[in-house]
Lab assay of single mutants.
Amino acid sequence: MGFKLLSKLLVYLTASIMAIASPLAFSVDSSGEYPTVSEIPVGEVRLYQIADGVWSHIATQSFDGAVYPSNGLIVRDGDELLLIDTAWGAKNTAALLAEIEKQIGLPVTRAVSTHFHDDRVGGVDVLRAAGVATYASPSTRRLAEVEGNEIPTHSLEGLSSSGDAVRFGPVELFYPGAAHSTDNLIVYVPSASVLYGGCAIYELSRTSAGNVADADLAEWPTSIERIQQHYPEAQFVIPGHGLPGGLDLLKHTTNVVKAHTNRSVVE
Rank of each mutant, 00 (worst) to 15 (best):
A215L: 04
H115I: 03
E225K: 12
P152S: 05
T140S: 07
E44G: 15
I40R: 06
K258V: 11
V121E: 00
T60H: 09
E145H: 13
A165D: 07
G240S: 03
A178M: 07
P138D: 09
E80G: 10
V54W: 02
L185A: 02
K8A: 14
S27D: 11
D52H: 10
Y12V: 10
A111I: 04
E172W: 02
K8C: 15
V265K: 13
E39P: 09
S70W: 00
G197E: 01
H115N: 06
P152F: 02
G53M: 08
H252Y: 07
S27G: 12
H154E: 10
T153G: 09
F168E: 01
A136K: 04
D214M: 05
F116D: 03
R141S: 04
L106W: 07
Y68I: 15
S205Q: 08
L6F: 09
A51G: 09
D216G: 05
A234P: 08
N92W: 01
S137R: 05
H154S: 08
D183V: 03
V37N: 15
I104Q: 01
G53R: 09
H252D: 03
L24P: 13
P152N: 01
P138V: 09
V171A: 06
N211E: 13
Y12I: 12
N184T: 02
E101A: 14
T254P: 05
R206C: 07
R110P: 05
G43Q: 05
P35C: 04
A25Q: 15
A25C: 14
E147C: 07
G177M: 02
G198H: 04
A213D: 13
H180F: 01
S162M: 10
D214L: 06
N149D: 08
A192V: 12
A98F: 12
S205I: 08
E80D: 09
S139N: 11
D79C: 05
Q229W: 10
A95R: 12
D164I: 06
H241R: 04
L185T: 02
I224C: 00
A259Y: 09
A98Y: 10
I40D: 05
D85K: 00
I17M: 15
N71L: 01
N92K: 05
L83W: 04
R120C: 05
N262E: 13
S208G: 10
L106G: 05
Q103P: 06
V266D: 14
S70A: 05
V54G: 03
T207G: 12
P244C: 01
R142M: 13
D52T: 11
E267Q: 12
G43V: 04
V189N: 01
V121W: 01
A94L: 15
G2W: 09
T93Y: 00
P23H: 15
S38F: 11
S62E: 09
H180K: 02
D79G: 11
Q228R: 12
V75Y: 02
A90K: 09
A213S: 12
Y202P: 05
H230E: 11
A87S: 05
D216K: 06
F236G: 04
S31V: 11
S137W: 02
A259L: 09
P170H: 03
Y231T: 01
Q49L: 10
N255E: 14
S22L: 11
G2R: 11
S139P: 09
V54K: 01
S160F: 10
S193V: 07
D183C: 00
T134R: 01
R167Q: 13
V166Y: 08
A215W: 03
F168T: 02
T36H: 12
S264N: 14
I40E: 07
E157K: 11
D119Q: 00
E225H: 10
N184A: 00
G122W: 07
A25Y: 13
A59E: 08
H115L: 04
S193K: 14
E33A: 10
L243T: 15
F116S: 06
S208Y: 10
Y202V: 15
D248R: 07
P221C: 05
G72T: 00
Q228L: 13
T93G: 00
I104R: 00
D119A: 06
Y68R: 06
P170N: 15
G72D: 05
G210T: 05
T254N: 13
T140F: 04
N149G: 11
N184R: 00
Q61C: 05
P232I: 07
T261C: 06
V75W: 01
V75K: 02
N71A: 04
L204W: 09
I100F: 05
D85V: 01
Y12P: 05
A95D: 07
A66M: 15
H117Q: 05
R206D: 06
G78Q: 09
I50K: 03
Q49Y: 13
I201M: 07
V256D: 05
T222Q: 14
T207L: 12
P239F: 02
Y231F: 11
S27I: 09
G65Q: 10
R46D: 06
D79T: 10
P152G: 02
G105D: 10
S27Q: 14
H154W: 13
V126K: 06
E39I: 11
I20V: 14
D119K: 00
A98H: 15
I238K: 00
S191D: 12
Q235T: 14
P138A: 09
P107D: 08
L143M: 10
A51L: 05
A66P: 06
H117L: 02
E147V: 13
A234N: 03
A215T: 07
Y12D: 13
S62N: 07
L173C: 04
T261W: 11
T109N: 12
H57E: 00
T153S: 12
S162R: 14
P41F: 07
V266E: 15
D248P: 08
G43K: 06
L10S: 15
E145T: 11
N262F: 10
L97K: 00
E33R: 12
V126C: 03
G198L: 04
V28A: 13
N211W: 07
S161R: 14
I40K: 05
T134M: 05
A144C: 14
P41K: 14
I224Y: 01
E172M: 04
P138E: 10
R76H: 09
T182A: 13
A98K: 11
A218K: 14
V212A: 09
F116H: 04
P190M: 07
T86C: 02
I104L: 07
D52Y: 09
N255M: 10
R110K: 12
T261F: 09
A130F: 11
V45H: 03
F3G: 11
T261R: 12
P107H: 10
R167Y: 10
